[in-house]
Design a protein around this nucleic acid. Sequence first.
DNA 1: CCACCAATCAAACGGTTGTTTGGTTCTCAC
DNA 2: GTGAGAACCAAACAACCGTTTGATTGGTGG
Lengths: 195, 195
Amino acid sequence: MGNETTRREELLVVAARLFSRKGYHATSMQDIADELNILRGSLYHYIESKEGLLYELMELGIQTLMERVRPIVESDLPPDEKLARLIQQHTVTIASYPDFMAVFLHELKSLSPPRRERILAYRQEYDHLVRRILVEGVECGVFRPVDVRVVSFALLGMVNWVYQWYSPDGPRSAEEIGAIFANVVLQGVLERPEK
Amino acid sequence: MGNETTRREELLVVAARLFSRKGYHATSMQDIADELNILRGSLYHYIESKEGLLYELMELGIQTLMERVRPIVESDLPPDEKLARLIQQHTVTIASYPDFMAVFLHELKSLSPPRRERILAYRQEYDHLVRRILVEGVECGVFRPVDVRVVSFALLGMVNWVYQWYSPDGPRSAEEIGAIFANVVLQGVLERPEK
DNA sequence: CCACCAATCAAACGGTTGTTTGGTTCTCAC
DNA sequence: GTGAGAACCAAACAACCGTTTGATTGGTGG
């Protein structure tokens, strides 16, 4: 780790930025090479192919997300606390690595079937983590008896959308946004009468 | 209207399907022409350019959404009822035209700046509609004093994400999904003690 | 000082891209 | 039955694509 970045990591970061801003197919090897001040053929000293590069970026994205969220799910906190922390952690992670996360969320269709299958497996694993919390909460009566599948999609849409509008210069930090999200999902927006 | 579809409308439908499945840049004029059984040069009898075609599809998407949602916002229903109906209508619209909506939500970055600006204006207009309901609800005490900006993004993420997973063959109709969404946003998932 | 190796260049490859041009076919109104 | 216009073809255009090959550079350990 430390402060040194290898040339290869530099390549990955540049590619993630370009892929997320312009899209995978709209970004040429030329574009990436220009940013690194080398010729486009030279990129193949670091990567196997353009699509291999895309796959690597997406795998990095989903793995980062998963290793940050899994400990929460497997902890022994009460379900409502787990859900709140998951929502917040997911939000913060997306805000921390917006380029990688945008690529991961956007470019699944740009992968060839075998690689797409592998990323889809990751994604389903992650979906399962989210649902486990909901099932747990409903079973022990902390949550109302909601449709777990639909609510988990609602939740994922809410947090995944963050990369579309979040800016570090905005009025709220990623932590605050995560907390607001969690609050809405748990309590709803409706004001309640005293009794 | 009626049952007759012109060749041009056929083109738009085919293009929307291909753009949404493979992405704009990954879809060639060849691909579109093949689907219509003509040569790719012949497409220019109907459209001005590939990007002009994309713009037209996106405009169709956002306009459809807006003309279905605006009457709800401008009605004189109470804010909680307005919000529930907006969420449901948005969900149903996305489920009804998934190809057009996916293109509208995904391909903004594929437009050149002038056209992108115009679509962005539509989108901001739509965002404004959503926020108006929230502000209204907070002001008259029906909603808790939430951060309107962040909550509106939460809400939009939730409903926009629908195109990623909805299937007409799934266990729930778009109307049901919309109702579940509205319920979560209004009430939250938390069970509440009797008193 | 030599040998190695990572990093990069230079040049070419076959293929595809979006778009233009000018001509052809077909249908239908008058 | 002739003129008009819509629908489409055939062919070409320059530009760019991802990838491969073999040579070259510069630094570093022995």
